[in-house]
Simulated assay, not measured.
Amino acid sequence: MKTKKIFKLPIALFLFLYFLYLLVSSAPAAWAAWAAHKAVPSLWLNNVEGTLWSGRAKLAQIDMGAESLALGELRWELSPWTLLIAKPCMKFETLLPNQQISGSFCQSVFGQSTLSDFNADLPVENLSSILPVQALGPISLQVLEASFDGDARIESLDARLSWQQARVHNGDKWMSLGSFAAKAKADEQGGVQADVFDLDGPYKSALVARWSAGQAWVVDGTITPQEGADELVVQGLQLLGEDLGDGSYRVQWP
């Protein structure tokens, strides 16, 4: 009798997993769109097709304050086995000319969300609707790992950002700034702290940028103009920054 029960257990488990597979593989993609918006309220998926397991949204966008960022077509693949640990995970990618975004997102039934292997490459002009000035140059964001609690507070973060061949328009002409990078981590208060530094160009920079939910970015640090620095930028630093006497200026914003 005990032997029969032992054999029945794996059979029952197999049947349960097979039922789960059938359920996930046949569930409509609209379920995934609903779940994605529930987990990330600023994300909108339209014209969805496929299944919960593997589908696509022909039009996707994410709200960024009063403006939004177009993502183009978004495709995803859900790992059905992650449902067994109550933490469904999906791999995703977006398709838009000159813009590539991909990564893996997991949502726990207990409210915690995690993002990993995230990569975004796009021209900074794609963000023109949320930038205070016109800007040019490719940007690249890599999130190795990030986790958020049920209130979207950042619990952990390991990210890298770069802006190559940065240029901004001052209303009269384009100014070349060089290339910059940043390393970001969680600040243990639910926000972000990023160390910003120059890679090349006429502005040696050592800045710390901080952000928390509901607050604007706060920036503090030093900028040292080098040979080739634009005269208007130097004048701006002299006007708005604190001259440290060694050619550097301390800047604070706001």
Rank of each mutant, 00 (worst) to 15 (best):
K2D: 13
L9G: 03
P10K: 15
I11D: 14
I11T: 13
F14V: 01
L15R: 14
L15F: 13
Y18Q: 06
L20N: 13
L23F: 14
S26R: 11
A27I: 04
A30D: 11
A35V: 00
P41M: 01
N46G: 01
E49R: 04
G55N: 09
A60R: 05
M64Q: 05
M64H: 14
A66R: 00
E67R: 12
E73P: 08
L74C: 06
R75F: 02
S79R: 09
T82R: 09
T82H: 00
L84W: 06
K87Q: 05
P97V: 02
P97C: 00
N98L: 15
F105N: 05
C106E: 13
F110A: 09
Q112N: 14
Q112F: 10
L115D: 02
L115F: 09
D117K: 15
N119L: 12
I130Q: 06
A135N: 03
A135Q: 07
I139T: 14
V143C: 06
L144W: 07
S147D: 07
D149Q: 07
G150F: 08
D151H: 10
D151C: 13
D151E: 15
R153S: 10
R153T: 05
S156P: 00
L161E: 02
Q165F: 12
A166R: 02
G171L: 03
D172T: 15
D172W: 14
K173G: 11
W174I: 07
S176E: 15
S179Q: 02
S179T: 07
A181Q: 12
K183D: 15
K183S: 08
A184G: 09
K185T: 08
K185Q: 11
A186M: 07
Q189L: 00
Q189D: 13
G190H: 08
Q193I: 10
A194W: 00
P202D: 10
Y203A: 01
K204E: 03
K204P: 00
L207G: 04
V208A: 13
V208D: 10
A209S: 13
A213H: 11
Q215P: 00
Q215A: 07
Q215N: 15
W217G: 12
D220I: 09
T224Q: 14
P225R: 02
Q226M: 06
Q226G: 13
E227G: 08
E227F: 03
G228N: 13
D230N: 11
V233L: 03
Q238A: 12
L240A: 09
D243P: 07
D243M: 03
G245Y: 01
D246Q: 14
G247A: 10
R250F: 05
